[in-house]
Amino acid sequence: MRIEVVADVKTTLGEGPLWDPEQERLYWIDSFDGRVFRSTFDGREIRAWDVPEKIGSMALRKDGNGAVVALANGFHLLDFTTGDVHLITDPEPGKDNNRLNDGKVDKHGRFVCGSMDTQEEGPNGALYRLDPDFSLHKLDDGIIVSNGPCWSPDGRTFYFADSWSGEIWAYDYDLATGNVANRRTFTKIDTSRGGAADGSTVDAEGCLWNAQVYDGKVIRYDPEGRIERVIEMPVKKVTSCMFGGPKLDILYITSMAKPPLPRFPGDGVLRGSLFAIYDLGISGVPEPRFGA
Rank of each mutant, 00 (worst) to 15 (best):
D267C: 04
G284P: 06
A211G: 07
V218C: 03
D162W: 15
F264D: 05
A170T: 02
T201L: 02
N210Y: 01
K237Y: 15
G281S: 00
E228S: 10
R229T: 11
S240D: 14
G284H: 07
A170K: 07
F275N: 11
A196W: 00
G266W: 00
I227H: 00
P260L: 08
T185Y: 00
S283E: 14
Y214W: 09
K188V: 14
G281T: 01
R156S: 13
S240P: 06
E224A: 13
M233G: 13
V218N: 08
A204I: 14
R229A: 12
Q212C: 13
S192D: 10
R193C: 13
M242N: 08
I282R: 15
D174E: 06
D267V: 10
G291K: 07
N210G: 06
P259A: 12
P260C: 00
R229C: 12
S273Q: 04
G291R: 07
N179W: 11
K237P: 08
G268C: 13
N182K: 14
R271E: 05
T187M: 03
P286F: 14
P286C: 10
D279T: 05
D162T: 15
N210C: 06
N210W: 02
P262S: 04
C207K: 05
T201P: 14
K236G: 15
G194R: 04
V213L: 14
M233I: 12
R289S: 04
N182A: 11
E232K: 10
I189T: 01
V218D: 07
P260W: 04
V285S: 07
V213W: 15
I231D: 03
V238T: 04
R271K: 15
P265I: 02
V202S: 01
P223D: 03
A204L: 11
Y159C: 00
K258L: 08
G268K: 09
W209C: 06
K217I: 12
R184K: 11
P265F: 03
F186G: 00
Q212D: 12
A276Y: 02
M233T: 05
F158Q: 01
G268P: 13
E167N: 09
I277F: 01
I282W: 09
T177Y: 03
L280T: 05
E287R: 02
A197F: 08
R184W: 05
G216A: 11
E287P: 13
F264G: 02
V235N: 08
A204M: 12
I168Y: 15
G199I: 00
D249G: 01
G268N: 15
G291M: 04
N182P: 10
V202G: 01
G291F: 08
S163E: 08
V235L: 00
K237W: 13
S273W: 13
K188I: 14
Y252G: 00
G245P: 01
R220Q: 10
E228R: 11
R183W: 06
P259G: 00
L274P: 06
R183F: 11
E232A: 07
G244D: 07
S163D: 02
D215R: 02
R183C: 06
S200Y: 05
A257R: 03
V285L: 10
D279A: 03
R156F: 04
S163W: 04
W169V: 08
G281I: 04
W209T: 03
G268Y: 10
R289L: 05
R184Q: 07
N182I: 07
A257V: 01
V285K: 06
P259W: 15
Y278P: 03
E287F: 11
K236M: 10
S273N: 09
A161P: 05
